[in-house]
């Protein structure tokens, strides 16, 4: 499940040993790498030639008793399979996972949401505190409006000229504010300091997306192919996928 680079590489690796169907909720392969990335095009062609059944544009909702429920435009079907390889991508950590304490105030966004809103030219604030560095932070920094003051917390010091201040090594620990976020408290080695801001973007600490009922936690018939790293390269994703599914070869899996 998941036709990004990881899912494509896993499907290709398994196709030599089993009958493989690759399911993707979007209508084209590629995932966050996009359909026209050279590595995606290459893997799609190789999967096709290797006999992988590509099922695009349908969402996998439930995995139960070795059956996968697929829903799509005009489609509702169960697929029987011996094994589910889950390549559903990654997301930044939530406030609860960081953990980030404090009031539940407006102005705190997941990096994924912040990026989409910024793409739509929605102003999130005048002083953005971006937590973390890497894929989602880079996307947010690229879309940050020129009038916004951007502070980056944790991760590496970004090279972006839009960053006014950086606090590498610090972790966000508390959000302060009445209705809207007014300060973000950050901490390193027991030393805390408060940053004035009206928007906090959480882009740190990549976590695996788990959104198929019955495949949320590890079971013997589910394998997760989700490389959680702040910076990903196509080679790293493909190598990780191949190494992860290599142990499935002997199981006559589908």
């Amino acid at each position: 499940m998941g036709a990004g680079l990881a899912g494509l590489a896993a499907a290709l690796e398994l196709a030599a040993h089993a009958e493989v169907e690759l399911v993707e909720r979007l209508p084209a392969a590629g995932g966050s790498w996009q359909f026209d990335h050279p590595a995606v095009r290459d893997l799609v062609g190789r999967c096709d030639r290797a006999g992988v059944r590509l099922t695009m544009g349908v969402t996998a909702l439930r995995w139960i008793e070795r059956r996968l429920l697929l829903i799509g435009p005009g489609t509702r079907a169960w697929r029987e399979a011996d094994h589910l390889v889950f390549a559903g991508g990654t997301r930044p950590a939530t406030p609860a996972e960081l953990p980030l304490f404090g009031a539940r105030v407006a102005g705190v966004f997941a990096g994924t949401v912040a990026h989409h809103l910024m793409e739509a030219h929605i102003a999130l604030g005048r002083h953005l505190a971006v937590c973390g560095s890497g894929y989602w932070a880079d996307l947010v920094l690229a879309e940050a409006p020129s009038h916004a003051r951007v502070t980056v917390v944790g991760g590496d010091v970004p090279a972006s000229p839009r960053v006014a201040a950086a606090w590498p090594g610090y972790a966000p620990v508390e959000v302060r504010g009445r209705d809207r976020v007014e300060q973000l408290v950050i901490e390193r080695d027991g030393h805390a300091r408060a940053i004035d801001c009206d928007c906090v973007v959480l882009a740190a600490d990549q976590r695996p997306i788990r959104n198929v009922d019955g495949a949320i936690t590890a079971t013997p018939d589910v394998t997760y192919v989700q490389l959680c790293a702040d910076t990903l390269t196509p080679d790293a994703v493909v190598d990780h996928a191949i190494a992860t599914v290599a142990g499935l070869h002997g199981r006559n899996s589908t």
Binding site: L26, A28, G30, Q34, F35, D36, H116
Partner: peptide, 12 residues
């Protein structure tokens, strides 16, 4: 043709 959207970039 190519369609760019918030959920991705797709061939049309």
């Amino acid at each position: 043709m190519i369609i760019n959207s918030p959920v991705g970039r797709f061939p049309f």
